[in-house]
Write a protein that binds this DNA or RNA. Structure first.
Lengths: 201, 201
DNA sequence: ACTGTTTTTGAGCGTTCACTCAAGTTATCA
DNA sequence: TGATAACTTGAGTGAACGCTCAAAAACAGT
């Protein structure tokens, strides 16, 4: 009865995510978005409603992608702590200069810092994502404690927050003009810090 | 022979700094700046040249202020490491919800993340400031090593970068909707991490 | 008080912003 | 193949952007 859309919603969303990740919410104009998605304004607004709506979906897509990445790193290691340390090193590799990422820093953190006092809805979304990540890390660490990897007295929620702050610090630090070697060293020092929470044998 | 300026340059700069710190570069419009400084556009442009120029001076003022704060915390402690730990705790106190700061996050980091792919000049300035802080921390730690506070084998430049990443992580994390108690715990955990680098007696 | 210089003022400049919608185009199904 | 419904198009909307400048106002020195 009717015509099909010329664009794949997921592909368009991915392109939008990359642009927003690189330039931020205010830094990406609709003109640039039109060019990146190869879509005219009418199509964009018919599909995503508004710039806010598009950004919101792009941020959600980014969070989904990041979650998958963490789970992959964990799946590669039988030990939770080893997996988390591998995750830190992998972040350092991705966040090194010359990488193909739109930005070395985390899009959620960029969003949180940009939107906190200017766009409540978007800031709330960033908050929710970080809260969910904290929760996931806490559960992961609880599991590690049960398996005897972590010292029995470990306060897992607290360690999860420390770990999240480490990751935020690592990725934001990597946004500086700095050598990939120094970023790798930083990740290594953070991984070493995790060792102090291991159970003693 | 002529009229004096009605405005104190430093006071105006301070107000601009607070607005930019709160809302970011793009998030603070000239209209809002006019209102915050109680100055009309002509006066602002005569004094600071452009929005970029004003922001640049405001960022420099912020960096100066932050440097003074660190030196104060250090002066209060005879030990360098104690001073740095006190500094972490003080950051946590300032970055707690309900504080009077325009933003819990660091203005330099906010600027770095916002400007990195949109405004080269401003991003370079943020980079320089962070580089100078790293340098200052390195020298501070070298001094601590000479005084026997740090383990003799400590790689001070590397520890300085780790410390900077901690501070960036702490302050960015604090931008989340989170209790002041949890921010304080996070600072405490970071301070504890510094203890691992102390010389053993 | 007058003069000379500087500062302040604010209407308004051109541009860019996010966004709209009537008209045109195209795939689908009878 | 023609009718129909959905999608695409892009010129154009009003508002907000950073910024300018001629005129008015205010002080310092004579």
């Amino acid at each position: 009865m009717a015509r099909n859309a010329r664009y794949d919603r997921q592909i368009a969303l991915d392109k939008a995510m990359n642009l927003f990740w690189e330039r931020g919410y205010a830094g990406a104009s609709m003109k640039q978005i039109e060019q990146a998605l190869d879509m005219r304004p009418g199509s964009i607004y018919a599909t995503f409603g508004s710039k806010d709506g598009l950004f919101s979906e792009a941020l959600a897509a980014y969070a989904r992608r990041s979650g998958l990445e963490l789970r992959e790193h964990l799946a590669g290691n039988s030990s939770v702590l080893d997996g988390l340390q591998e995750h830190l090193r992998c972040i350092a590799r991705q966040a090194s200069p010359g990488g193909e990422s739109p930005s070395r820093a985390c899009m959620v953190v960029k969003t949180l810092l940009e939107a906190s006092n200017t766009n409540t809805a978007i800031a709330n979304q960033a908050n929710s994502i970080l809260s969910a990540i904290e929760q996931a890390l806490t559960e992961l660490l609880e599991q590690a404690k049960l398996q005897g990897e972590l010292a029995p007295g470990t306060h897992c929620a607290r360690l999860a927050r420390l770990l999240q702050a480490q990751i935020i610090g690592l990725r934001s630090f990597a946004q500086r003009e700095i050598s990939s070697e120094q970023v790798a060293e930083l990740a290594e020092d953070m991984a070493a810090m995790l060792d102090h929470y291991r159970a003693r044998h």
